[in-house]
Each structure stands twice: as C-alpha cells, then as structure tokens.
C-alpha cells in the first residue's frame, strides 16, 4: 500500500511536472515564517506538492478571529500554538514529512536554521517583520518568496538574496490596507497559492517567475499586474 501511494501520489502533477521536476521540488527544504492566513495554505500546498522538509515559525496561538480564513483553525484548537496544529495536520497528510517547528518570533529563532534551508516564505502579518526576514535571507544568501494581503488585494514576488526588493518597495511604510480592510476568507488562499506557483516556477528556472518583481492582485477588479521591479 505504501509503495502504491508513493507511485501514485504525484500522478496529477505530472501534466506540468516531469519526474525530474517533481524530484527537484521534493528536494527543497522550506522555511515558512508565519503559519496563519497565508502560511497555513502554504504549508498545506507545499506538503501536497511533495516537499519533504519544512520548518515552521510562528509565535501565535489559534484564536476565534482566525476561523474565517486560516486553514487549520477550528473551534477545537483555539488557544493552541499554530505551529503544533499545522505540524500535526501536515503529518496526517504526509506521515514521512520532516517538519520542525519554532513556537516563537522569527527574531528569536537561532539563525543557524538557515543553514538547512533552501527557500524562505514570508507569510507574516506586518511590514517590519517582512523586511527583517528579507534581511536574514540576504545575510544567509537564500531566496525569499514574498506575499502580502489586505482586503480584496494581495501581492507576491521573489526576492533574490540582497536584492532588497521588499525593503525598497516598502521603504518607511509601517502598515497597509490590512489595518482597515482586514483579511477576508478567500484572499489568503488565492495569494498563498500564487506564492506556491512562484516557488514551482523558481525551482524549475521558469523565465515567468517573478524574480525581483512585485505582482499586484486586485480581486475586486479582476486585475493582476507587475507594479514594481528591480
């Protein structure tokens, strides 16, 4: 049975991924910072894409206000660390997944974690931390898949090490539309899955990957376009 699952598990990826492509994705070691709105969907999708090695960082517990959008939030797990619940759910999907967790702020995680990571995902909920994660990626020479949301809107991009894409995009900004427009149910999964698509494109060296670019997603006006590039 186990061999049958191994053989068939990714058969529905094979329309767009060769077996070599699938192997490249499976070999990637991932760090997801923030496993709430964006991060829960990222962890789930990357697990189903076949990523074998994940590290999750989040300092928060699930709360009632997460229930509108966060994939793994349920009334039963309110008050529990997000990283613990996400790990449990990922292992139920993929029992042989290697998943490490840090129930803390990224600022408090030992930077040695970057040694065993290939790609970092930014799924945190504030601009200050997004810029900090990009700085860490620069120091440790790791690419960053960036994402952000607010109201009907979102953005994704890939910041190569030391490009300062995120820092230069935000400059002195400290907050955005999310303060007033919050995070409706359907925006985080859409933006998170665009981030996963960027991850796949990046792994496969697709020229369409948004290298050092910010793609704006306006779901209310059905509009996607690059608004910033370095």
């Amino acid at each position: 049975m186990k061999n049958k699952i191994a053989d068939l598990r990714f058969i529905n990826n094979s329309g767009i991924l060769s077996s070599e492509d699938q192997a490249k994705i499976q070999a990637m070691r991932i760090l997801i910072v923030g496993v709430g709105g964006l991060g829960g969907y990222l962890a789930h999708a990357l697990c189903r894409m076949g990523v074998h090695d994940m590290c999750l960082v989040d300092k928060d517990l699930f709360s009632i206000t997460n229930l509108n959008r966060q994939l793994f939030s349920t009334p039963q797990n309110i008050g529990q660390p997000k990283v613990d619940i996400v790990k449990r759910e990922l292992l139920s999907i993929c029992p042989d997944l290697s998943v490490k967790t840090h129930f803390s702020k990224i600022e408090e995680v030992d930077e040695s974690v970057f040694k065993n990571i290939d790609i970092v995902f930014d799924a945190v909920d504030n601009i200050h931390c997004k810029i900090y994660i990009e700085k860490l990626c620069g120091i440790h020479n790791r690419p960053l898949i960036h994402g952000a949301i607010g109201g009907w809107y979102g953005q994704v991009g890939i910041s190569l090490a030391n490009s300062n894409l995120v820092k230069d995009y935000y400059q002195q900004a400290t907050s955005g539309l999310e303060q007033e427009m919050k995070a409706p149910t359907f925006v985080p999964p859409f933006v998170a899955h665009l981030m996963v698509a960027q991850f796949v494109m990046f792994c496969l060296n697709k020229e369409e990957a948004l290298i050092n670019q910010i793609l704006n997603i306006d779901m209310l006006n059905n509009d996607l376009r690059v608004i910033y590039r370095k």
Binding site: L38, N126, G150, G176, I227
Partner: peptide, 10 residues
C-alpha cells in the same frame, strides 16, 4: 504612473 496602497497582512 501607478497609484496604489501598501499591503502588509499575512
């Protein structure tokens, strides 16, 4: 010219 607003949620 693009006119927009920042997004910072996650």
């Amino acid at each position: 010219v693009i006119l927009t607003h920042f997004l910072g949620g996650g």
